[in-house]
């Protein structure tokens, strides 16, 4: 078990450190790279918890797609983050005040939080044990069986988002020269070259 605890502390420390670096790195590209590091460590924590499917999904979806997309956006948009951060010290007292108020509220809420003693009995659907149902199977059961309606509705919402983005941004611009291979092949010298006899000393 000592190996598991060591791994947990390793992953957790690197995760928190990487997360801090994401918001404090000067260079936005470095931020995204630290974000990827954080994702990998979170995936490690999932593996420790026995949720290997989620760990794989995290790496594949977040590192493979989302973070790379972020990287593209950050590189292409060319935002100067140092400029954005200029008022940092000026807003620090107010921000700190808000943060402290939130923290106090959270402490108050969790201070009064009590777990009902008969909570085990109240669980309507007891959690399946990992021995009988695999991770993937359990998630599939939730998404495709219990919540099939919600899942499909969410799919329709994403479809609308896609159509909307295309409708609002795609436009056929004028003045774009497209290659028309048939026209190019059919072109004869007589179509584009005109031979003019220029009298000496007169010009055209």
């Amino acid at each position: 078990m000592i190996v598991a605890s060591l791994a947990f502390y390793l992953f957790a420390t690197v995760l928190v450190a990487a997360a801090v670096m994401v918001i404090s790195a000067k260079n936005p590209v470095h931020s995204v790279l630290f974000l990827i590091l954080a994702f990998f460590n979170a995936a490690g924590l999932f593996v420790l918890l026995g949720a290997e499917f989620l760990a794989m999904i995290l790496v594949v979806v977040y590192v493979g797609a989302v973070a790379v997309l972020f990287l593209f956006v950050v590189m292409m948009l060319d935002i100067s983050f140092t400029e954005l951060r200029q008022g940092f010290l000026q807003y620090l007292p107010l921000g700190a005040l808000v943060g402290i108020i939130l923290l106090v509220e959270l402490v108050l809420v969790y201070g009064g939080f009590a777990i009902s003693p008969d909570v085990e009995g109240r669980l309507a659907a007891p959690m399946p044990t990992p021995d009988t149902v695999t991770n993937t199977h359990a998630i599939g059961q939730i998404i495709y069986t219990h919540y099939i309606y919600f899942f499909q509705a969410a799919g329709m919402i994403l479809l609308v988002a896609m159509i909307g983005a295309i409708v609002l941004t795609h436009r056929s611009r004028g003045g774009v020269h497209r290659q028309k291979i048939a026209d190019q092949i059919a072109r004869r010298p007589s179509d584009s070259v005109e031979i003019v006899k220029v009298p000496t000393g007169r010009g055209i």
């Binding site: 509705a153 969410a154 609308v160 909307g164 409708v167 609002l168």
Partner: peptide, 19 residues
Amino acid sequence: IALYLGLELQSLALYVIAS
């Protein structure tokens, strides 16, 4: 949840056709 998903589907499509 069903209510919210329906509402969002409606609203999202309406935002697009408003513009």
